[in-house]
Design a protein around this nucleic acid. Structure first.
Lengths: 121, 121
DNA sequence: AAAATACATGAAAACTTGTTCATATATTGA
DNA sequence: TCAATATATGAACAAGTTTTCATGTATTTT
């Protein structure tokens, strides 16, 4: 009976070079770590997550986001700029309104997977 | 031909109450947003991601993490404390060594899904 | 043309986060 | 027992993030 099927080995300093080499293989490289962190960072703030939840399946104008989220217009605009700079949202101007929508499927995927786990399980 | 299969509606302030109600249904509640943010925040730092990558499939002692990551012992110890407080890692003392391993399957899942997308795609 | 509406933005303030430095504890080896 | 090794931790600091405040631009309405 194995309690944890994920852990395959115990690695410590006294080990042979081969073990240490295995560990080095598992280590993600820094550029990858940086890009990965950037993606997760986009999802690391409660208000931004609430904002994203609204943009997952609808195109919504800024004023409606403000009314729904109960945040100031300025705070929302700043968050949207942030998401824009990361290319996570797209926007479309129509008259005096600007409609935003989520434009990154893997952020959408991570959001939904995270939500599943947090809600039940 | 639909360019974006995800976006189902455009919602704006002038809309009827029903549309606004739909939007409110999509909004995640604050406690959920907070817990979700906490999970993603754990994955939002490059060094922490590199650390987690080592713990995904192996139990590793602190000194080996230090050697492999090229971080100071103190920095690693602080990061491990953080992950401990979030119940994301478990640890096991054996003599003067302490072995750490990842202990949260949905963080493991999010990490791997994120990595897939960042690496190719 | 003036007023109102919708949104953006720079700067500062408030808060959070990650690292370093110094030091503490616990275990092992001489 | 004394020195060395392995790890933890509090405090201070640097850097980053989010919000607020004040203000700016563009579009529409009157």
């Amino acid at each position: 009976m194995t309690l944890d099927p994920h852990i395959t080995a115990t690695i410590c300093q006294d080990d042979d070079t081969e073990q240490i080499a295995i560990l080095n293989d598992h280590l993600i490289d820094s550029p990858t770590a940086n890009r990965l962190a950037e993606v997760f960072k986009a999802l690391s703030d409660p208000n931004r997550l609430r904002l994203i939840s609204l943009l997952l399946e609808n195109e919504v104008c800024v004023h409606t986001l403000e009314a729904t989220l109960g945040m100031t217009q300025s705070a929302i605009s700043h968050q949207l700029r942030h998401l824009r700079q990361l290319n996570l949202v797209r926007f479309r101007k129509e008259g005096r309104h600007v409609y935003y929508a989520l434009d990154d499927d893997h952020v959408r995927g991570l959001f939904k997977q995270g939500l599943l786990h947090v809600e039940h399980g």
